[in-house]
Computed example of a mutant assay.
Amino acid sequence: MIEEITVIRMTDGESSEAVEEVVEEMPLALYVNGRWVQTAMISPSMIKEFVIGHLFAEKVVKACDEIESIQIEENIAKVLLKDPLGIVNLKKVVLSGCGGGSSFLDESKLPRINTEFTIDWRMASESMSRVLGSEIHRRTRGVHSVGLFNKEGEIVIADDIGRHNALDKVIGYAIGENIDFKETFVGVTGRISSDMVLKCVAVEIPIILSKGAVTSLAVEIGKITGMTIIGFVSQHGMRIYTGRIS
């Protein structure tokens, strides 16, 4: 995840050679049923979790038994679905995230999240602090971090150069652990945009919070689906855009 490189550091007009830590980045070509789906620029960790989470969050699959196999070889991930036509009619939408990613999610077909799960302001603040405490984030300042939590505490935190990728990774991890998403929430280091909310809705995560801002379409989707969206979370306060906290 971290690589050391030699740089020229400038301080007060003076230059010197130094070693800096930078986050690694790699292309991952994703093939489903032999068809190229996309090439994602990701950080080289939790790759299988990313693939599984991406398939679920994009509604390519809805259950683990729809996946026949996943094969990862260096920069290529090959997924075989039991349904040979499972990827044929899906349409992509360009995302707002860095790198020009794409999504198969359809905003016109939004389900409601039916759960009574809530958190209080203290849990929101403490969880956000956990996400911001990621060592790789602290050392490089070059990744986004996403944490998945329940009322017992942290389930998993993932780091990636892309916030969408990091969210896919925690979703994929939780699926492997048979976690009930309706009793969880996520904290993210980046802004909450519509595509991040849609991924949560796809697996029925009812709450998303961030230290950063929220977009107007994210709020609109939150209202339609019953999702709780909280921005600008800190130790001193937060802004609740949709939903509620206890």
Rank of each mutant, 00 (worst) to 15 (best):
T6E: 12
R9L: 13
T11S: 08
E14A: 15
S15P: 09
S16K: 14
E21S: 12
E24Q: 13
V37C: 07
V37D: 09
T39M: 04
A40S: 05
A57H: 06
A57Y: 12
Q71I: 11
I72P: 00
K82E: 04
V94E: 14
G97L: 05
G100Y: 05
L105D: 08
S108R: 14
L110H: 03
L110M: 08
R112I: 06
N114G: 02
E126T: 01
E135T: 12
V146H: 12
G147D: 02
L148K: 05
N150Y: 12
N150D: 15
K151N: 13
K151Y: 13
E154A: 02
D159Q: 05
I161F: 07
R163N: 07
R163E: 13
H164R: 03
N165G: 04
N165K: 07
A166C: 04
L167T: 11
G172A: 01
Y173I: 03
A174C: 07
A174D: 04
I175F: 01
D180A: 07
F181K: 05
E183K: 15
T184S: 00
V186L: 09
V188W: 10
R191Q: 13
K199F: 00
K199D: 06
I205V: 09
I208V: 14
L209R: 02
A218F: 02
E220C: 05
M227Q: 15
V233A: 00
S246E: 11
